[in-house]
Design a protein around this nucleic acid. Structure first.
Ligand SMILES: [Mn+2]
Ligand SMILES: [Mn+2]
Ligand SMILES: [Mn+2]
Ligand SMILES: [Mn+2]
Lengths: 217, 217
DNA sequence: TTAAAAAGTTAGGTTAGTCTAACTTTTATA
DNA sequence: TATAAAAGTTAGACTAACCTAACTTTTTAA
């Protein structure tokens, strides 16, 4: 049985590697994502190594092992199913679900998760458009196009976002950039990398940083 | 913000006092209910005292303060709402709900609990017949008659049980003593205090220890 | 090709929650 | 009412997860 903390480290490693198409991660970026100091991450990495959940050597890069990945994906599955439950059944908005799901993802009960999946009708994506791993532990990682790299003057559909923070999501709402919205990049300004958009017919101007967090198809 | 452990101590104190109609509790019984050693409970009691959640002096009896009671009742409310959710919406049996609710009761989100209450139709009792505290923090403690003290040869209705453990509940199921069942004590044997019962027309023999855990009306 | 910057580790310390073993206080009972 | 039993506390130790400060290794780039 892994502690909540150990689960959070494994989950962060999957976010930093598999979900980005990369094969390894560094101590500092891991620590930053978890909101701890690098020294703390080093300690935990030693522990996860003795448990054979990561591959790692001193001053080297971190890779997750197959058992480590399996466990992390189960936690991600729980997180995204809970987010979907909160959104679909309990009237939560998409910017409220993440914080509570961070707690719920650590509840230990196979039956609970299987039944939740059934209650929700076996959903494939969460309220942010992120794929929900299957009960067999399969996580789809389709290469995704962000608004920052989308072709100009072509209509795209908003498929998801790459940031779970409430503040960001509220801003996305305000811009009108909901999942399913029709979106077109009218122009990119070389001067400051800002993007002129048309969303469901309305004009909007956003930064490159914003555009990089929106997935489209 | 209280830790899960602190919440568990406060909840245990309410179970040992208010729910039994008693005004104070002892260190040893508290420790036993929580599955820790008395020395551990002493340490925690000192901490809860500095936080003004219990009243307590060395070698004396423990009482819970008003803020302590309020917090404990919120946790009990969450526990019983989650048990009801698992039972009503997720196909859990009454002997499976407690273990998972022990984890879920510590999730911090007012909205989550209010919405869960609504989803369930504002239930007043959990799957074991225990009262669910109201959102205002009111916990009904109606004096309850156990099967061990019920009048002979009179039909009663099973209202609840006083033990959440799976093993006990499975035994209760086997005896056929579900909530709502019609039950009659045919005879008590002075020799070993065993009880001859008639449950929904069927005969059964149970011990005094068993009879003390069944609430009837 | 070396020095500075970045990345990562170690040593030593803290807090929460637990334990055992030895001790003290209170209560029960002979 | 003295003593034994029960109840409760203290001291010292351990683990998990965190920190800061100082150190080492690796990478970058002048
Ligand atoms: Mn999330
Ligand atoms: Mn999500
Ligand atoms: Mn319970
Ligand atoms: Mn219950």
């Amino acid at each position: 049985m892994l502690s909540n903390t150990e689960e959070n480290y494994l989950k962060a490693l999957v976010h930093l590697t598999i979900e980005k198409g990369l094969k390894d991660a560094g101590t500092n970026e891991l620590a930053q994502l978890l909101g701890v100091k690098p020294a703390t991450a080093t300690d935990m990495l030693k522990k996860l190594k003795t448990k054979k959940l990561v591959d790692y050597k001193k001053y080297g890069r971190i890779t997750i092992t197959s058992p480590g990945r399996k466990h992390a994906i189960e936690v991600i599955r729980k997180h995204r199913l809970w987010e979907t439950f909160l959104f679909e059944k309990l009237h939560f908005s998409w910017d409220e679900v993440h914080e509570v799901a961070e707690q719920l993802e650590h509840i230990q009960s196979k039956k609970l998760i299987d039944e939740l999946d059934r209650l929700l009708g076996f959903p494939s994506v969460d309220p942010h458009g992120e794929p929900i791993p299957s009960s067999k532990g399969e996580l789809k990682v389709k290469p995704r196009i962000t608004l920052a790299e989308a072709a100009l003057k072509t209509t795209h559909i908003v498929m998801g976002v790459n940031d779970d923070h409430a503040e960001f999501l509220q801003y996305v709402d305000k811009v009108g950039c909901k999942i399913g919205a029709k979106i077109k990049v009218i122009q990119r300004h070389a001067f400051d990398d800002s993007h002129e958009l048309e969303i469901n017919g309305k004009k909007a101007l956003v930064t490159a940083k914003f555009a990089q967090q929106i997935f489209v198809a």
